[in-house]
Design a protein around this nucleic acid. Sequence first.
DNA 1: GGTCAATGGTTGAACTTCATACCTTTAATC
DNA 2: GATTAAAGGTATGAAGTTCAACCATTGACC
Lengths: 260, 260
Amino acid sequence: MTAGDPEERQGRVEPGLEPGLDRAILRPVRAHHAFEACVEQLAIAIRLGIYPPGSMLPPERDLAAMLSVSRATLREAITALRSAGVVQTRRGRGGGTIVLDSVPVDEKHSGVKELAGRQDDLRDALDFRAIVEPGAAGLAAARCERDEVSDSERRALETALAAVEDAPDEAIHRRADSILHLTIARLSGSARLITAVTDAQDDLHTLLQAIPVLPRNIRHSSSQHRSIVAAILAGNESRANRVMYQHCSDTAALLRGLLG
Amino acid sequence: MTAGDPEERQGRVEPGLEPGLDRAILRPVRAHHAFEACVEQLAIAIRLGIYPPGSMLPPERDLAAMLSVSRATLREAITALRSAGVVQTRRGRGGGTIVLDSVPVDEKHSGVKELAGRQDDLRDALDFRAIVEPGAAGLAAARCERDEVSDSERRALETALAAVEDAPDEAIHRRADSILHLTIARLSGSARLITAVTDAQDDLHTLLQAIPVLPRNIRHSSSQHRSIVAAILAGNESRANRVMYQHCSDTAALLRGLLG
DNA sequence: GGTCAATGGTTGAACTTCATACCTTTAATC
DNA sequence: GATTAAAGGTATGAAGTTCAACCATTGACC
């Protein structure tokens, strides 16, 4: 059956025309246990500032539903976060799980050492980001152009931009930056892009933790943010795309040095 | 903590500056049972031509490892495929699971009706594809330019292109087309892009099943394929990107009509 | 023709996850 | 201050998943 295979053996036939494609395409159906995956997602949401220090996670029953796990499993995850010192829990009405202020940075986990085993993966992450984020910005602009963006969405974008500019310290700045990018992804209206940008931002976070961010870089970045938001709100798709690409490229250039 | 919230209540605080962002970002940790997810992945691999009719799946032990599930779970999946008439299994040395020729098209599942509940999702899929596939083509070209592409990879690309042109019927053409796109994704060297393109191709498959493909469209598509492959092999990143974008846009325009 | 090795088939115990129901605590609320 | 509702805490059995052996079949190989 395989095209032009001369030996008519009846047995195994190489998959298709592309031997090995299956190894590239089939992916683990379950990387972790459910509760580990929950820990990971919550940790990401906290790192990216979706649940900033001082805020409360949704009630366990709601969170479990959002993550499509049972409450028992979610509670295992929260227990893990609690014993890692990331959150605290209070019972009773008005209680809940609160995100602690000083997310323990785990000194061991900061710095370049952490990046060791992931160099190729993180290079990939930077490439991927430079594809999906400009795509998201472009789509968002296109939706603005077609007037599919509500006023509240527009305001959310401006608020997110302002939050980045007003950030008083590096940690808050980093979170506000992520939120801005995620808000843009949300404006794109694409669930797939939101997922892709979330993943990209988390990888970016990993990399940025390894270096101190210079004021000069922040200024450069802020000016690009303003251009991007302006292009989106003006409905200028190609410009939004182009400036976001530049923004991602600049960051990537800065970071690629870390990866040898 | 919430920006400008006047009431200093100690209780729940809205997540961050972006209420509702969490609902957009947290995703189900497990959509299906493990064995269902296996069925799905295998079905996709078969649909996309990674395991074409007449070919054999890898031994159960290998497949289980690739999908990171136990053999017991994988066997449940294969049993499901078998009773759906998609594959057949022979025991003993040289035995294994073979993909049957006539993948039963499930008449109920073809046609426009199937698309009913997924219109927004499939529109999203087309948008997403028009972002990631050009990105993959561009990266592949860049890798060629930097001479990071082996001869065997170059040949694989040419073979995949030839297979599309030589396809004797619609079903084979469709599979060869998917393989070509996946081969390009593989040449990009990015695991994330391979995943993204695989997903996009499967969604595309869903849509294309609903309409008959006209010879005119095939010719148009083939000429674009040639341009794309040429641009990649020549290491012309921006051209590869641009032509692939055009290719995706043209297909999308054709299909968007189906989605109201 | 006999042996062997590669393949699918089977079993059962340990662990994880789920679904459900119910308990306890505590702040709102009246 | 009593009531109530909203949260976290606990318990239990069913279902799903894993793991590790072992069995059965059959073509490949000598």
